[in-house]
Structure formats: structure tokens, C-alpha cells
Design a protein around this nucleic acid. Structure first.
Lengths: 232, 232
DNA sequence: GGCCCAATACTCCTATTGAGAGTAGATTAA
DNA sequence: TTAATCTACTCTCAATAGGAGTATTGGGCC
């Protein structure tokens, strides 16, 4: 079994508390989908992998007539996570089909290209709205931020007892600082995609064709602006 | 054989001229790697797929003692590309390992987290620099922009003869308008990654620990700013 | 009170894709 | 002239995606 970023994504969740397999899968989807996506089937496979590696332990838990699997991190798992965090991250990557269509847009119509850009903008906006929902939860009274402001950290070993809950979910307010940074980064990126896709849509709608020679001065200005903006 | 965005990425290149398999692979790497990456082996596999689909034709070309494969688009291939351009694009996705590390950063040290963020910023900057190299080429005298400004479009069927060349490569200046938009979008995104990764690095370096309670006011301000900035 | 739909809680299979090794001629720089 | 790098691919195995399949449970609606 080979370890991947997905392995550590799950391991990191297990480092905060124990989860059932289903919860782990849902939580990965909720929180890391926008920056590191994997399929549901693969997430379950990776959970088994964690046990095989000795990084987590499973036990069958009774829930009515059926059983579910509860995963708990081991000492070896905690060590593996700490070790991973000291290594260098991979290059960031984007996967934006709309830009592939834009790149080949000269072979299609202005209307289709503009529609593609609008669809990309809409998708980015929908993702952004989903993230904003988390922000509202975090800012709500009794939520993790409120807990921090009332001295409940939850992520330090010095506090005894079970974690505080909010909206039926256990909260670990001490993690909120890093999570807020992830949210800020991700929403910035999504807003950037929405913004350029939307303005590209409106730009190309002004063209007579997808190879309109009349766009030449705008293209020169655009390339020069890119060069100027990013010159180091 | 199932078609994917990669299939259409190759098909779009073939719609501008004929290429050898090696050239196609290099060109995909050069131009679409940042928005749609695939492995080298897979690109060769997809080229065979295009022939199987009847969207491209191959012929063996003699080059010294060895042969290489020259791919040419067919009428069916041109139709398939036009058809694809009318359909809706997929959701955009990011794959940013640095943000997975940030999300789980509360389990590691401040120094390691800051180093991860700096490494992510460095990688984004390197990618951005590579794109700026293209911009310089496009803006150079005799380059595609210069051609446009001298009435050479190259992408319209009305112009007879072989395409004009620049720096040993055939140029299709009419495509420059869309390409400039792709470059502007991609560089904006990369600059955004560089910027937030860099500022996150400096932010966390000011923390006493990765769950430092002293960060609470900054975290509140951050979440409120996100909510305000993106409220629709 | 019973029915239906959605959510819970997974497993399993097939097809796609990635990653890297392998082969061999051609060209460039020392 | 030799070594390294580039051209120009093929091939294989392992990783991953995507979706079908199974069965229980909880909630809402008539």
C-alpha cells in the first residue's frame, strides 16, 4: 500500500478524534473536496490502508441492527502525520476545463465560448457559496469562534473531558485558526475564477468572431499588462 | 475508448495543424499543463485513441534512420471538436497539497507550516515565471502579435500558403486573442496562490503555536472579512 | 399508521490514468 | 570522441475514478 496525500488527509482527521468510515468520507468531502478531491470508493479503500499500515485501528461498533466501523489513530499514525508535516508539499495544480475550451476557443463560436466561461463562473460561485456557509457556522453564537473567545480551546491535551459540541458536531476550536486561513485562501481562489471567467465571457461577447482581428489592440494591452503586473 | 478532456485537448491542437506524436506531447505539456495535466504515457495512448475514433489519421514519416508518427485531423475530428465546444464545461478544481497541510497544520509546528506555505508560494512563482516567458515571446518583434499588427492572421482559411514561422515554430496569430486570455487567467490564479501562501507563511510565523489562542481576534477578523468580501 | 424517499454505511468491480522503466537513433557541448 | 541530453516513442503495473449494488434507518407526508 502506497501512501498519498489522501492518506494523510484522512490521518489528519483521525488526529483530532475518532470517526466512523462514513463520517470520514463525508468529512473529507465537506472540508477538503475543493483543494484535494478523491472518490468515495477510494476514501474507503484508504481507510483500510491506514489499518494495514498500523496507523489506525478499527473496531466494529453496533448501531441498531447494523454495525459500522470506527477508526482511531495509533501512536504510529500520530508519528507518521507529524513526520509528513515536516516534508515539502507538492506543486499546486489547477484543473479548469473552461480554460482548455478557451484555449481552443478559436475553433468554435463566440456564443459557445462565452457560455463556457459563464458556466465556469457559475460553478466557482456555487463552490464559493458552499464555503460561505461554513463561515456563517463558524461565526455563529456558540460556534467554535465563540468557544475560543470564551476560553475553550479543545485542541490542547490539557483540557479534560469530551469535546464541546455545536450543531450536533464536536468542535475543536483550536483548529479554527488554520481552518480560517484555508477558507480565506480557497474563497480567494474561487472568487478569482468567478471574476476572470465572468469578465472573459463579457469580453468575447464583444468580438465579431473568435479570431476577430479587431481584438488586436486589446490583446497587446492584455499581454503587456500581464508582463507588467507580474514582473519581479 | 472513452473520450475525455485530454482527448479534446489533443484534438484542438490537431485542428490548427498536423503534429508528430512527440510534438503533441510536448505542446500539451507546454501549453495546457497548468490547467489540464496528464502523464506523457497517457498522451501517447490518447493519440492512438484519436485514430481509433476516426478523429485523426496517422502516417509514418521518415526522419533519418527512424520513423515518427504524424497525426492529421479528419473531417469527423473537426466535427467532434466543434460539437464539444457547444457542450458545458466541468467544474473547476484545485489540487493544492499545501492547503491540505495547512488544514491539518495544528498537528505540527509553526516552522514546518510556514515552510510548507513558502514552498507552495515558490512553486506557484516558478510556474508563473514560465508563463511570463511565453508572454515575452508573443510580444517579441516578428512574433504572433507583430504578425497580427501587420495583417497576418494565419487562422483563417482565406489565407493561402503555409503558416508564417517565428523562432522556428509555425505561428497562428489568430489564436493569440484566446491564448492571451488563458495566460491572463492562469497568471492571475498563480499570483493569487503565491500571494496567499506567502502571506500565510508570514502570518503563522507570528504565532506561538499552531493553535495559539492569541490568534483569535485575527481569526474573527479574517472570517468576517471573507463573509463581507464575498457576500452577494 | 404505513409508505416512500433520503440518508446512513458501506463493498465490490471495471475502466481510466499515472508513473516510470525501457529502447534506440540524433544532436550538442566539452 | 565521448558523454549527456534530446527526440520519439512503447509497454507494464499500480493507483484511482466512477458507478453499481446491498441493506438498514430516520423523517416527512397523506
Amino acid at each position: 500500500m502506497k501512501v498519498s496525500t489522501t492518506t494523510y488527509g484522512l490521518l489528519g482527521l483521525l488526529a483530532v478524534r475518532s470517526w466512523t468510515g462514513y463520517e470520514l468520507t463525508q468529512q473529507m468531502r465537506r472540508s477538503l473536496r475543493f483543494v484535494w478531491s478523491s472518490s468515495e470508493g477510494h476514501l474507503y479503500r484508504e481507510q483500510k490502508g491506514l489499518v494495514e499500515l498500523g496507523w489506525a485501528a478499527v473496531e466494529d461498533e453496533q448501531a441498531g441492527a447494523r454495525t459500522r466501523k470506527r477508526y482511531t489513530i495509533t501512536a504510529a499514525g500520530e508519528a507518521a502525520l507529524r513526520e509528513w508535516l515536516t516534508t515539502a508539499p507538492q506543486e499546486p495544480h489547477f484543473e479548469i476545463e473552461g480554460l482548455v475550451r478557451l484555449f481552443h476557443g478559436s475553433h468554435g463560436s463566440v456564443a459557445d465560448l462565452a457560455a463556457s466561461m459563464d458556466a465556469t463562473a457559475d460553478a466557482a460561485r456555487a463552490m464559493l457559496d458552499e464555503m460561505l456557509g461554513f463561515v456563517d457556522e463558524y461565526l455563529a453564537d456558540g460556534g467554535p469562534l465563540w468557544m475560543l473567545e470564551h476560553g475553550i480551546n479543545g485542541a490542547t491535551a490539557s483540557e479534560a473531558g469530551p469535546p464541546a459540541e455545536f450543531a450536533g458536531r464536536p468542535m475543536f476550536p483550536g483548529r479554527l485558526h488554520v481552518i480560517a486561513l484555508v477558507i480565506e485562501s480557497t474563497t480567494t481562489l474561487l472568487a478569482s475564477v468567478e471574476s476572470f471567467a465572468r469578465s472573459t465571457a463579457s469580453e468575447v461577447r464583444g468580438w465579431a468572431s473568435t479570431t476577430d482581428p479587431a481584438a488586436t489592440p486589446a490583446t497587446r494591452a492584455r499581454l503587456e499588462a500581464v508582463r507588467k503586473r507580474h514582473r519581479r
